[in-house]
Amino acid sequence: MLRVLGRVTSINVRKVLWALDELGLAYEREDWGLPLRDPKVPEFLALNPNGQVPVVIEGDFVLWESNAVLIYLAEREGGLLPEQLELRALALQWLGWQASELNPPWGYAVNALIRKTPGYDDPARIADSMARWTLKMDILEAALAGANTGYIGAGFSIADIALGLSVHRWMSIAVEKKELPAVADYYERLMSREAGARWMGPETP
């Protein structure tokens, strides 16, 4: 049985769980990650020296980094990635973009407005975080507006799982923000998927 170590409040853990559900794969999940269970203990660090979730274990095979897990599952099961090389590369382009470009700008705003983390209360920094985040969302809006599949590429893929969870965070943040109609349509489409609705619920922003 495949095991997933990580708390469901982690966006990166939910990437993996959503993919597993889309593929119809059975798994067991164990709570790891603060405030539930400290991943900086020797037991966990032996699996992932970064002390971060998720970690996936299957027999003697241990894998960390959520995007690596998504690619592994898609490759192994033969789904959630296009077969044509160019289309596959474009899906992986957006998967990488989600982690490297879309996610970093939201850090301060999410800590301030969703997580309510102490010390994240500077209005100027919140505004700056939202402005930088909006610029990245504008890129996604333009890409989705020009798509004819309803998804970011040739069809639903692991890139849409990652982007969908980021869009869910955008939709969940309680602040005035720019209207992005293509992104809103995309969000509704992803929410119409059973696994999408499960892992983009109101309790997991």
Rank of each mutant, 00 (worst) to 15 (best):
M1S: 10
M1D: 02
M1N: 03
M1Q: 03
L2W: 03
L5T: 06
R7L: 13
I11E: 05
N12D: 01
N12W: 06
N12L: 00
V13Q: 05
V13Y: 04
V13F: 01
R14F: 09
L17R: 03
W18Q: 00
L20E: 08
D21K: 09
E22Q: 14
L23C: 05
A26E: 15
E28Y: 05
R29W: 01
R29V: 03
G33L: 10
L34F: 11
P35Q: 07
P35Y: 11
L36H: 09
R37N: 12
N48V: 13
P49F: 12
N50D: 10
G51F: 13
Q52M: 14
Q52L: 14
Q52D: 00
V53G: 08
V53P: 01
P54V: 13
V55N: 11
V55M: 12
V56P: 00
D60Q: 13
F61G: 00
L63T: 10
S66G: 09
S66D: 03
S66T: 08
Y72F: 15
Y72K: 14
A74M: 08
E77S: 13
G78V: 09
G78R: 05
G78A: 07
G79D: 15
G79A: 15
L81Q: 11
L81Y: 11
Q84T: 10
L85R: 13
E86W: 12
E86R: 15
R88M: 11
R88I: 11
A89F: 09
A89E: 04
L90H: 09
A91M: 03
A91R: 02
L92W: 04
Q93E: 14
Q93V: 01
Q93G: 03
W94M: 03
W94F: 08
W97K: 03
W97C: 00
A99V: 13
S100D: 03
E101M: 11
E101N: 14
N103C: 04
P104W: 05
P105I: 01
W106M: 15
W106D: 01
G107C: 03
G107S: 09
A109V: 00
N111H: 15
L113R: 06
P118Y: 12
P118G: 09
Y120K: 07
D122I: 11
D122W: 10
A124V: 15
R125Q: 14
D128C: 02
D128K: 00
M130F: 12
W133E: 08
L135E: 00
I139S: 07
A142E: 14
A143T: 06
A143V: 02
L144M: 08
T149W: 07
T149D: 06
G150C: 07
I152Y: 03
I152P: 01
G153V: 12
G153R: 01
F156E: 03
F156H: 10
S157G: 09
S157H: 02
I158C: 07
I158W: 07
I158Y: 06
A159I: 10
A159E: 11
I161S: 05
L163G: 02
S166R: 05
H168V: 03
S172G: 10
S172Q: 12
A174Y: 04
E176P: 10
K178Q: 14
K178D: 02
E179A: 15
E179I: 11
L180C: 12
L180F: 15
A184K: 13
A184D: 13
D185Q: 13
D185T: 14
E188C: 07
R189P: 04
L190I: 06
L190R: 05
S192T: 04
S192V: 01
R193T: 08
E194W: 02
E194T: 13
E194F: 02
W199I: 08
W199A: 04
M200D: 00
T204K: 01
